[in-house]
Structure formats: C-alpha cells, structure tokens
Nucleic acid binder design. Structure first.
Lengths: 102, 102
DNA sequence: TTCATGTGCAACTAGACAGTTGCACATGGG
DNA sequence: CCCATGTGCAACTGTCTAGTTGCACATGAA
C-alpha cells in the first residue's frame, strides 16, 4: 500500500480539507478562512494531498482550484477491508474446527 | 472519524504488524524478529495500535498475545468510501445538469 | 499601466514521534 | 528454589513535520 496516502490521511486538518473538497473544488485562499490556519499552512497540506494523488491542481484564471481524486481513497479502503477480511476468515475457520471437534 | 486510527495507520511498520496479526495472534517477542527493530520498538507500536482499538491484548500464561480487532478498520474504510461517494455523486449531478442544458 | 488579489518560495521554531539502551519485575519449568 | 524467558517502565537522542512569518512573483480588472 502507498505510504503517502495513509501518511496524508493521518492529519485531521487534511481529512477536513478532503471533506470540504468533496463538496466541490476550491482554491487555497477560499479554503483557508474556514480553518484556524494561515493560507500557507493550507497550501502545504494541499501539497501533501496532491503528492499522495488524492487531490489534483487545476489552474483557473489567476487562481488554482484543488479537486478531490477518489482513486487513492478507494485503494486505501480496499486495503483495510482486505485486512479485516483475512482475519475474519481465519476466525471462521477456527470456529469450524472447534465445532468439528465436538 | 477517530484521529488515533488514521494516525496509527500512518506508520508502515504498524501496517505490516497488522498484516502479520491478520494471520493470527502473536506476542511482541514473537513478532520482533521479523522486523528490523528492537522488541521495545515493536511493543511501542503495538501500544499505539492498542490505544487506537485496532489490537487487543490477551495475557496467556507469561506471555501477552496481541490480536487484531477489525471494527476500527471497518469504520476507517467506511469513512473513505463515504467521502469518495459524496464527490462521485456531485460529479454525477453536474453531468446530468450539463446534459439537461443541451 | 497600475493596483488589488492570488500564488510561490524559503527560512525558522516548537513540538511530536520512532527508535534505542538499560534495568527491574514477573512467571513457569526443572 | 533457581534460572531462563518474557514483559514493563523510563530516560535519552535524532529526525521529521506542522505552522509561522516575510517577501517576491503573477495576473486580471479598471
């Protein structure tokens, strides 16, 4: 699994940014007032999200709009469910084994 | 969403620990040799995983076995898919709107 | 062209975190 | 009982990262 994705998701501010972007593309300057941060800090967070492939930059006149990219989210989600599934299946086999013994 | 879960998932070593634990419960001492780390470092990682509720400790004689707990994994996965779904739906509505214009 | 608005880059600081070492405590088998 | 094995706690270090400030550059409208 891609390190950058989970690393980017670790920060609560970045997760809030993703939630905000899920409602539509925004510029860093447009995003910043909603957060107790400087624009620069927001830009940095958007940078790491971009590097992780979860956000795409699109120049629009003199402003840059950041747009959500869902592919990495899906991959991360898959990794989690697969992991859980492996363990659940093992539990199931164990249960079957125990029942067989009786 | 619970901060601790995504924070715990951010570290690649911890993700590898989870993968290992998905194949069955292990003790810290049993886990350590598979990693380029001291037992103490592994214990620390297991500690943060435990705090995040992704792992449960069970004393077994004189050793402590760590067991995978899937609930937080499911919640994290849900958060991701919901986020992606919101954005996808917005795209869909936008597409419909454009098609209506024609 | 001129100015307001938006963006980009760089240096600096404080705090968090991974990993280590060292040692003390607990427990089960011979 | 005695010792090997496993665990728990604490202090210390280096590194990474979030956030800030300050300033320079770009661009669109009047």
């Amino acid at each position: 699994m891609n390190d950058a994705v989970f690393l980017a998701l670790a920060d609560p501010t970045r997760r809030r940014l993703l939630e905000r972007l899920a409602t539509g593309p925004r510029s860093a300057t447009g995003l910043a007032p909603r957060f107790p941060l400087t624009r620069q800090a927001v830009v940095k967070h958007l940078g790491t999200l971009t590097d992780a492939g979860m956000v795409a930059k699109h120049r629009h006149g003199r402003e840059v709009r950041y747009q959500l990219e869902t592919a990495p989210l899906g991959e991360a989600s898959d990794w989690l469910t697969t992991l859980a599934a492996r363990w659940e299946q093992r539990l199931l086999q164990l249960k079957r084994y125990v029942e067989e013994e009786e």
